[in-house]
């Protein structure tokens, strides 16, 4: 966010026209953000405030009695709930693995297909195929592949010449989450490859040429030209993957329903499961609220730390 840097260029002297221009700028800006802000207000802020308010009540999905205020009861219960802490842990592990791995692999893929060699368009499209396939469908297909006698294990068996036998991926508490992680990266990496690609395109080609003339090798060119040139893209990729990772739900809902033995339960899964399947609306709202505050706190701390370094 470098917008606050003082602008270069002269301004017409004199107070009057200048303040008028500033006022105009402000009004126009307000007009430009207002459609988005208004829509977010109506379709996000209001319902979210309603949802969070429910966390302090006895609201149920189905109930003959109106909800009443119960103070912090739901939060007290929440902090004694081992499944909630397991969900937090799983979500954190998922994000901690997926964010660097997916971002890194996506960048590697982008560099790999960012050439003028024939067929690049073909490869870009192929890598993008999982992205355009619905996550529900993907999860169903991978459930087949991950079965004990399914194709993944068949391949492992073949390639290891019968020495290795894959586990029952989704039914083993130690492999279920890794299996979901692998599939999620596989599904999402194509999308971020494309984002990286569009970032790579913004780097002027003459910079590369100049560096090549200076005798910089590939790694040096990557470090000193490409990487700095991807600054804005980097932030975007990291934030989008992080948010997506923290919202992990569909895969779990389709493939494991949080099991086996809570090894794949996540915060959003738990919120939806308790809110809809178990009809405990207020409790689910408490989960969402606590999660919101946690993520907000983490990201604020992160912002604060990175700002200090700048």
């Amino acid at each position: 966010m470098t917008t606050l840097l003082p602008r270069a260029g002269a301004r017409p002297p004199g107070r009057g026209p200048r303040t008028a221009a500033r006022r105009r700028e402000r009004l126009t800006a307000l007009g430009m953000v207002s459609p988005a802000v208004l829509l977010l207000l109506v379709f996000f802020v209001i319902p979210v405030v309603l949802a969070f308010a429910l966390a302090f009540t006895s609201a149920r999905l189905i109930s003959p009695t109106p909800a009443h205020f119960v103070g912090l009861r739901n939060f007290t219960l929440l902090f004694q709930d081992p499944v909630f802490f397991r969900s937090l842990l799983n979500t954190a592990v998922f994000a901690a693995v997926v964010v660097p791995v997916q971002a890194g692999l996506a960048l590697a893929l982008a560099l790999l297909v960012n050439t003028k060699v024939g067929g690049t368009n073909f490869f870009r499209t192929v890598y993008f195929v999982p992205v355009v396939t619905s996550m529900v469908v993907i999860s169903i297909v991978w459930m087949f592949l991950y079965q004990k006698t399914g194709l993944v294990n068949h391949l492992i068996d073949t390639f290891s010449l019968g020495h290795l036998h894959g586990p029952d991926w989704l039914n083993d508490p130690s492999t279920a989450l890794p299996a979901i992680i692998f599939m999620s990266v596989w599904q999402g990496v194509g999308f971020h490859m494309v984002i990286w690609l569009s970032g790579l395109q913004t780097i002027p080609a003459d910079l590369h040429e100049a560096a090549a003339i200076d005798g910089a090798d590939r790694w040096a060119r990557f470090r000193h030209v490409t990487w700095p040139g991807l600054r804005a893209t980097r932030t975007f990729v990291l934030i989008t993957i992080t948010i997506d990772a923290l919202r992990l739900f569909t895969q779990v809902n389709v493939m494991t329903q949080g099991g086996p033995l809570d090894s794949t339960t996540t915060v959003v899964y738990q919120a939806v499961h308790t809110g809809y399947d178990q009809q405990q609306t207020a409790y689910a709202s408490a989960i969402s609220l606590v999660f919101f505050v946690l993520v907000l706190a983490v990201s604020l701390v992160q912002r604060f730390l990175t700002r200090e370094k700048d």
Binding site: P47, L50, A51, I239, I243, V268, A271, G275, S288
Partner: peptide
């Protein structure tokens, strides 16, 4: 801008029902 980005943290499923009512 920070507030807008913060809206990403709340998954849709968690406020879908209040939104229906609304």
């Amino acid at each position: 801008l920070v507030l807008i980005i913060a809206t990403l943290i709340v998954p849709f499923e968690t406020f879908a029902l209040p939104l229906v009512w609304w």
